[in-house]
Every structure is written in structure tokens, then in C-alpha cells.
């Protein structure tokens, strides 16, 4: 085990896979000379050269499409979006091309590609730069959506994403880039579709992903200290495939579930999880499943209002109290 930062774990995963496989290359805005807008790709240009660490102009649709085309004929691109907000410009390449090519060619073409970058609200970056984009992408058959919350997963899930034969979207988080954690030595690859119980508990299950794991663990800790209900905290790790079985199993023990996510409340993987759990664990539920989500609004710039728009330990605690009081 070694302690790394989240951004270093991502970088290490990419570098190791680039060493292993000549076909892997990185493309995106400011990934090379600038060393990455958020320093995830720092040092990679010097190590792998301009052929494999490619700075692009601001042309998301163009370079995403070029990468998809290159993947169709045998390369394995890693495309960085400076933030996932800008993937909206390339949405057509992901939705109508990357995700569809295998199916509509009758299995002749595969698209082994990784799209990655920071997702969700940063800090007061306003309405156009704060999207939690997983809601859109987790909908799409043909792609996989990965949301590492821990440093070990940043490495393990990234390596799995690069080795996968399908388009994989890795949604990172600017607020996690600086966090530290243990990473197993050696060729650490984490599986898709396997949720992790990050804290065991008895009375209520909290299911979450990405940076919302932090307020969930914080709330669980506060409750444990205050003699409140005991929370089991589950990190979904990948949203497609979505491991609801681990959540169902937990709910069979606790009888209560709160789903916590940053994205808007309307639909999305959180609602999908609730749908599956109510069907498979109806008999085990002692209360309706609650969701603690981002508010149903475009992100305000003002700090106080932004904080009120994104779930935190306080709103998670309120949701836990509400589900316990039912």
C-alpha cells in the first residue's frame, strides 16, 4: 500500500496503461504543455511525447469524434474533457456514435475509448460549469459510467476503464483531486458493477457515489457519536453497470434507504436505484425510500445559495432523521 492523491492515482493508472499498451494515448485541452488544467496529466507529455499526449484546440465535438473513429480501427484513446460540462458539446459523438457503433454494425466494430474529466460542482463556478452529468450518460446503453470516490478506485477503476472494450466514461471530481488515500501496490484493477460497503451499519442504508460519499460518511460518523441511528454507507462505484444487489442486501438488514447524490432529483441513476430496490426488497422496507439530492434548479453563483443547492452532511442527517421517523 502507498498513499497517493486522487489525481496522482488517476495519472499513475494512465501512465501504467500507456506503458503496457502502445495503442493507448491521451487527447484533450491543455493536457500536455500546460500539464493539465487540473494537473491530472502532469508530467505525461515529458514521459510519453507529443505523439501520445496530444493538446487539442477547443473543439470537443471534433476531437471526441476523432477519438471514436480512431478507436473503431484499433487505437485506445483516453479523451480528457477539461470538465464534463464541456462534454455537452460532444454529446452527439458519445450518444449517437460511440455508444451505438457496436450494436448498429451488428457487432463488427468496437469502440474501446475512455472519456474522463472532473464532474459536478466545483466552487462557485456558476450555472454553466456545475453540472453533474452522470444523469444524462447513465441512461445510454452501450456505454459504461464510472464514478470513483476513493483514491484506490481512482486508480483501479481507471485501469479497468482503459482495458475495457467499450466506451467508458470516468467522472472524476475537482473537489476530490487533492484527497489522499491508500492504493494497493502492483497492477491494481477494480471491477465494474460491484458496489462497496464503506461503513457497516444496522438501522439505515445510505447509497451514494462520487464525492457525496464524504458527506454520507460524515453524517454517519456524527450519528454514531451522538448515539443516533447506525448507518450503512454504500459507494456504488459504477452507475452503469449498477450494482443494486449490494443495496438490496443491505436494505434487507436495515429496512430503510436514503439515496444521496449531487445531480438534480428528476430521474437519473438515483431514481433508477430506488426503482430496483422497491421492486426487489418491497417486503423488507419499513419506510419509503428517500432521496437527498441537489436542488431542482440551475446552480446559483452566490456561495451561500450554492451550499444550499448541493447536499451536505446536514441535509443527509435531515434525510436520515426523516426516514427513521416514518
Amino acid at each position: 500500500m502507498r498513499e497517493l492523491r486522487y489525481r496522482e492515482a488517476l495519472r499513475e493508472a494512465m501512465a501504467e496503461e500507456m506503458e503496457r499498451d502502445e495503442r493507448v494515448f491521451i487527447m484533450g485541452e491543455e493536457v500536455g504543455h500546460y500539464q493539465g488544467a487540473y494537473k491530472v496529466t502532469e508530467g505525461l507529455l515529458a514521459r510519453f511525447g507529443e505523439k501520445r499526449v496530444i493538446d487539442t484546440p477547443i473543439a470537443e465535438e471534433g476531437f471526441a469524434g476523432i477519438a471514436v473513429g480512431a478507436a473503431m480501427v484499433g487505437l485506445r484513446p483516453i479523451v480528457e474533457f477539461m470538465t464534463w460540462n464541456f462534454s455537452a458539446v460532444a454529446f452527439d459523438q458519445i450518444l449517437s456514435h460511440a455508444s451505438k457503433l457496436r450494436q448498429m454494425s451488428g457487432g463488427q466494430f468496437t469502440v474501446p475509448i475512455v472519456f474522463r474529466g472532473p464532474n459536478g460542482a466545483a466552487k462557485q463556478t456558476g450555472a454553466q460549469h456545475s453540472h453533474a452529468m452522470e444523469t444524462f450518460y447513465a441512461q445510454i446503453p452501450g456505454i459504461k459510467v464510472v464514478v470513483p470516490a476513493t483514491v484506490a478506485d481512482a486508480k483501479g477503476l481507471m485501469k479497468a476503464a482503459i482495458r475495457d472494450e467499450n466506451p467508458v466514461l470516468v467522472l472524476e471530481d475537482e473537489r476530490l483531486y487533492g484527497t489522499k488515500g491508500e492504493v494497493p501496490d502492483g497492477d491494481h484493477v477494480a471491477p465494474f458493477g460491484v458496489a462497496a460497503v464503506r461503513r457497516a451499519g444496522e438501522d439505515v442504508t445510505l447509497a451514494t457515489w462520487g464525492k457525496m460519499l464524504l458527506p454520507c460518511l460524515d453524517a454517519a460518523e456524527q450519528l454514531a457519536k451522538g448515539g443516533g441511528p447506525s448507518c450503512e454507507v454504500i459507494d456504488l462505484r459504477t452507475l452503469r453497470p449498477l450494482d443494486h444487489h449490494t443495496v438490496v442486501e443491505s436494505v434487507r438488514k436495515t429496512g430503510r434507504l436514503v439515496v444521496v447524490h449531487e445531480a438534480w432529483p428528476y430521474g437519473g441513476p438515483g431514481a433508477e436505484l430506488v426503482d430496483r430496490v422497491q421492486r426487489e426488497a418491497f417486503d423488507a422496507l419499513d419506510a419509503p425510500v428517500l432521496r437527498c439530492t441537489g436542488r431542482d434548479a440551475s446552480m446559483p453563483y452566490n456561495k451561500k445559495l450554492e451550499d444550499l443547492t448541493i447536499p451536505d452532511a446536514k441535509t443527509v442527517l435531515a434525510a436520515v432523521r426523516a426516514v427513521m421517523a416514518y
Binding site: 456558476g126 450555472a127 446559483p300 453563483y301
Partner: peptide
């Protein structure tokens, strides 16, 4: 000018 909802960019 945008009621504090937009910020510098908006």
C-alpha cells in the same frame, strides 16, 4: 446585475 446568481462570468 444578475442578483448574485451569475457571478463574474455571467
Amino acid at each position: 446585475c444578475s442578483k448574485g446568481l451569475g457571478g463574474s462570468m455571467h
